[in-house]
Structures are given as C-alpha cells and as structure tokens.
Amino acid sequence: MSWTDLADVIAAACLLTGAALALIAAIGVLRLPDLLSRMHAATKPQVLSLLLVLIGLGFRLREPEAIGILVLVALFQLVTSPVANHMVGRASFRAGQIDHDRLIVDELSEVLPQIEEPRGAP
C-alpha cells in the first residue's frame, strides 16, 4: 500500500464524516424547536463538516499550491461563521422573537431596553 493510497483513504474518511456532519446540521436546522437552537446546529456541525471536507480535499489533491487556497477558505469560514450567526441572533433578540418558555435563565431581556450606546455595526 503506497502513501497515495493511504492519503486517499484518509481523504475518503474525512469526506464521509464531513458529509454526515452536514446532514446532521441540516436535520438540526429542520428539527430543533426555536431559532437560537437552530443557529447552534447551523454553526458547529457545519463549520466542522466544512473543515473536514477541505482537509479531505487537500489529501486528495496532494498539490502544495492548492493547500494555500484551502487554508484561506477554512480561515474565512472560521472567522465569518460566528459573526454572521451573531448578527442573526442579535436581530432575532432585538425583534423579540424569543421563545421565553424555553429559557430557564434570561439575563438579557430586562437590561435590553437600557442599552443606549451606539451599536457596533453602522
């Protein structure tokens, strides 16, 4: 068994796990009861699945030039996914679309009207 076969096996494992995690993320987005829970499903398994797929692709391509762009995609995904989800979560909280029965502790709702300082985003 040469090392290219080994790399292909690793790539196949990474791709399979990544696709399974993407499926789990989709099931979570469909099944979980409220928006903020759904966002958890949309961030964590999704980012990990994308990272695994990119690692698998790197092992399959085995070209040093391609690694750079894959690293760039992974880095952008790691940085942007939390920001996007934070924006969505904040918008939903400010719009008051919160299922209060599902929260056992809510320390934000009582202070939210007092937040007068300018928002971070323009």
């Binding site: 993407a22 797929v53 399959r60 070209e63 391609a66 995609v73 969505v88 679309q97």
Partner: peptide
Amino acid sequence: MLDRTVALDVLTAVGICGVALEAALNRST
C-alpha cells in the same frame, strides 16, 4: 425571515461541500 437566513447559510456551506466533492472526484483544481 431569520430562520430562512440560517437555512440559506447552511445551504451555502452544503454547496461548498458539493463543489469540493467534485474537485475531489476529478482531482481538478
């Protein structure tokens, strides 16, 4: 609307995985 946005976000990620799969199948960059 925000639920749809979250779904769209994940859908984009699934699209990325799909393009990556094609690249892995044909070993094309």
